[in-house]
Design a binder for these strands. Structure first.
Length: 260
DNA sequence: ATGTCTGCAAGGTGCAGA
């Protein structure tokens, strides 16, 4: 079972790239972020023709998340994170696919920091951590996948020393991420590649991809029941080199089909 | 500070957000 996360940066502009990647990579489950499309403009039919059923949480102009499943209907369990009924931003969707609970998230960027956007990031992170703790307590196998907008360690960025004040790397951001992991979650890509540089995002600016000036900010966290089922993980870097591509690349893991 | 994209409301360009 192959599960991927991919920040598409606008599903309208990115549909040809998304469909080509689905055809080539054949993931079973896909978490998408940054749809930048309202609920009624999600390309459900085009995805269905590729064999994918979907649940999604759209928003005009910004944000937006979706979960796709190949040959199966994702069973929606929640839209939006609990903890703030005033929050209008579409950044979380959750569904069950083949007995695994999939949480698809788009954590706020938070720049410029400090400031109200950074405050919102940290508040959203607290709500995510509270919900993640509930999910662990439920005893169900869970994957929390998405664009965390977190660079976990120095190894995860091209020049970390330049990112001291960046909302993706500030101490408060990193400590929130490490506290989340400490609940009992496993960072699947870092576990698979303990000391390699693995990037998932390259800025559109200054030929960042050609210079491999990237960062690792898209993550798949596994609940304890799933760790022994982790076979391998990877980043489809080549997709970042395609025409009209996102600034993120798809990130994926492979799990054994059944509990050991 | 810079750089480059997307989507939007206009309106054939400029804005916010990333």
């Amino acid at each position: 079972m192959k599960i991927a996360t991919y920040n598409v940066n606008g599903i309208g502009a990115r549909l040809p790239v998304l469909l080509r990647w689905l055809r080539e990579a054949k993931p079973d489950v896909v978490c998408l972020q940054e749809l930048k499309a309202p609920q009624e403009r999600f390309p459900a039919e085009a995805l269905q023709q590729e064999g994918y059923h979907a649940v999604w949480h759209g928003q005009k102009s910004w944000n937006g998340v979706a979960i796709l499943a190949r040959g199966a209907e994702p069973k929606l369990t929640r839209r939006g994170l609990p903890g703030d009924p005033e929050d209008e931003q579409s950044r979380y969707i959750e569904a069950t696919v083949k007995e695994v609970l999939i949480g698809c998230l788009y954590l706020p960027n938070g720049n410029p920091a400090p400031g109200p956007k950074f405050d919102y990031k940290l508040q959203w992170f607290e709500r995510l951590s509270a919900h993640a703790h509930e999910l662990l307590s439920s005893g169900v196998p869970v994957i929390l996948a998405g664009d965390y907008n977190v660079i976990p360690t120095d190894l995860d960025a091209y020049k970390p020393e330049r990112l001291i004040d960046d909302a993706l790397f500030r101490p408060a951001t990193r400590s929130a991420f490490h506290a989340l992991l400490a609940q009992g979650w496993t960072d699947a890509v870092r576990t698979t590649y303990p000391s390699d540089r693995v990037y998932t995002f390259w800025d559109y600016f200054r030929n960042a991809f050609d210079r491999d000036a990237g960062m690792r900010i898209d993550h798949l966290l596994l609940s304890p029941q799933l760790v022994s089922r982790l076979v391998t993980a990877g980043v489809d870097r080549n997709v970042r080199g395609w025409e009209k591509t996102s600034d993120h690349a798809p990130v994926w893991i492979e799990l054994t089909d059944d509990p050991a």
